[in-house]
Amino acid sequence: MDPSEIEFIAEKSNIEIIPKFNLDGVIHLISGDIGPFRAGLPLIVPLWLALNLRQRNKCRILTPDWMDVDKLEEKKEEEKNSKFFTKMPHEHYLEVTQLLLKVANDDINRADEIRTLIKDLWDMRISKLRSSVNTFVNSGGIHASLDHLTQLEINSIRPLLPDALNMLQSLNQDSDSETEDGDSTQNTTRNRNTTDSFLSSSFHSSS
């Protein structure tokens, strides 16, 4: 899956904004109702709408509770000390942070520190993930538990891990069948030989 599609999914999560315009009545979206918009009064909207309104300078985005330097500092410490993956403050922490910092950098308190902290968290988790994938494949396990990994993190190992396991599987199956029915392999090689020789002879005759 393309990371942009995960960003697309992340944009579904809700966020609090302060609109700069008035709009009476509720907007009935298919994914749920939002509104009414009153200038200066905070309300919750999907992230995709918040970003769109912010780009048109029609609202201010409020920093989400978890996007706080102290809390993230704590989280980073916890992640560092834990052997396992810890629960992240948000299912799409990296995507949401990146989107917010790109579009609404001015609205976020201590944006640069947040950026570094989130990046550190991500790096730490990805390297933890890589080493556990390595252990898992070497141990020859057939089932892995991936609690607290976010969708984007899972996606980052998608091209590699399942494919590697599938490949191992088919290699093992092949080596099994080779030892069991060596006869049939010989047969196919013999058949191929006859076709080859037939082909070459027909080429000769036509030329």
Binding site: I142, H143, S145, L149, Q169, N172
Partner: peptide, 24 residues
């Protein structure tokens, strides 16, 4: 039930609510 094609055996696991896994 997860079949282990490597060793021709089966393994049984329980999936808890909201847990995440990698399985065949």
């Amino acid at each position: 039930i997860i079949k282990d094609v490597f060793e021709n055996r089966e393994e049984e696991v329980e999936l808890l609510e909201n847990s995440q896994h990698l399985l065949p």
